[in-house]
Design a binder for these strands. Structure first.
Length: 204
DNA sequence: ATGAGGATCGTCT
DNA sequence: GACGATCCTCATT
């Protein structure tokens, strides 16, 4: 699995689709199969990445070894989760944007009272962390270690993958580094620059 | 179905 | 001191 995380960030991002993110908590286990991710490069050509300004205190984790969890606080309200990828020192990461709950749906639903249908349980980066109960306590978690309460492992890859612009950013919007399972119902709504846009649902 | 606005605070300039 | 890799509610079409 670790070798799968070492390629170019967009290639690794695609490869993470279909993988499972599993959390074991006192209340029980929840697993999400990833259906949507975004790649963020640390190599300097990606101004949308939190690693763009180098290893600041927040982004330092991204410059460490692959397979760690980078958790950040968003909009003063939400926590979002990334998998650190690439060789150490590179600063690349893949944002976990959405998935389908495959284990522990009842528990996930109890953590997501606003979700009225199963597809909404982990549809969106902050929703996904809520469903999995990922938060600041999981900063730097070792996703590839069996003893970790937050883990990543292979699953069933999607039959087809679509690509498009990343969501909610205002720079480098030309890079098609958002990847999703073609046709997946749990893929989040497209938004650009933090504002809603009238646009058809993702193709497929 | 779509859009506006608010919540709320860590991080970096 | 400004700005988000967002989500939810409420109002209007």
């Amino acid at each position: 699995m670790e070798a799968d995380l070492l390629g170019p960030v967009d290639v690794v991002g695609r490869a993470l689709l279909g993988c499972w993110v599993v959390t074991d908590r006192p209340e029980g286990q929840v697993a999400v199969r990833l259906t949507e991710v975004e790649a963020y490069s640390g190599e300097g050509e990606d101004p949308a990445s939190h690693a763009h300004r180098g290893p600041t205190p927040r982004a330092a984790i991204m410059f460490g070894p692959p397979g760690r969890l980078y958790v950040y606080f968003s909009y003063g309200v939400h926590w979002c989760a990334n998998v650190v990828v690439g060789p150490p020192g590179r600063g690349s990461a893949v944002l976990l944007r959405a998935g389908e709950v495959v284990v522990g749906e009842e528990l996930a639903a109890s953590r997501r009272p606003a979700a009225k249908v199963p597809r909404d349980l982990a549809r969106g980066p902050a929703r996904l962390t809520q469903a999995l109960a990922i938060g600041p306590g999981d900063r730097d978690a070792h996703l590839l270690e069996a003893s970790s309460p937050v883990r990543l492992h292979r699953g069933t890859p999607p039959a087809a993958v679509s690509a498009g612009p990343r969501v909610g950013i205002s720079v480098a919007t030309d890079l098609p580094w958002r990847f999703w399972e073609t046709g997946a119902s749990s893929v989040s709504a497209f938004r650009a620059g933090g504002k809603a846009r009238r646009r058809p649902a993702p193709p497929g």
